[in-house]
Design a binder for these strands. Structure first.
Length: 174
DNA sequence: TAGGCCATCTGGTCCT
DNA sequence: AGGACCAGATGGCCTA
């Protein structure tokens, strides 16, 4: 995904299309009578309606821009969190980075698998018993390489079974 | 080219 | 009042 850091698109960056709600005390310059007011007129009291309005618009624009920046920072923080999550979640030989949705689902399976392991561990009286049960697949002869996957520890079929993430298992529950 | 994923903008709502 | 959060809209990039 090369769309990592795109500059803000400006197609509607507080452009004139932003609707200014009509209301009491608000008017657009084009609706003002006497469109040819001089600068002096506007700076003296008589132009205060227009000036007040444009100041309000300016303030609104500033607030909008500030809100956009905050939202951008918020989303960047969220993405940083997603990246950190991707690093600790197993990625079975995936060349492509997990999407946000996949990352969440994988994290869910991962946590559930770890929980299961802990629960099993509690069931066995001695730690030795538990270790011998779970560590046997780490003997060399019980490794099976999946051709499509990286020849790494994360392609261990045992672990794969334990933390398996199958997108089709995660249907939107509602 | 369609579809998926993503970043950004925007307005609404809720909270402090 | 202002900030955080959210969801919808929009457009760009990438891949099958």
């Amino acid at each position: 995904m090369a769309a990592a850091c795109r500059p803000p698109t400006c197609h509607h960056l507080f452009s004139p299309c932003v609707p200014i709600k009509p209301g009491p005390g608000r008017c657009t310059p084009s609706l003002l009578p006497g469109g040819n007011r001089s600068l002096r007129e506007m700076e003296s009291g008589t132009g205060c309606v227009l000036r007040g309005s444009s100041e309000r618009m300016e303030n609104a624009a500033k607030r909008r821009l500030a809100a956009n920046a905050r939202e951008r920072r918020r989303m960047q923080g969220l993405n940083t969190a997603f990246d950190r999550l991707r690093k600790v979640v197993p990625q079975w030989g995936q060349d492509k980075k997990l999407s946000k949705y996949e990352t969440l689902q994988m994290a869910l399976s991962y946590i559930m698998a770890l929980t299961r392991i802990l629960a099993e561990a509690e069931r066995f009286s001695s730690e030795r018993e538990w270790l011998s049960l779970h560590c046997e697949h780490f003997h060399g002869d019980s490794y099976h390489q999946y051709p499509a996957q990286k020849p790494a520890a994360d392609s261990d079929p045992y672990a794969h079974r334990l933390f398996s993430y199958h997108p089709e298992h995660f249907q939107i529950a509602n």
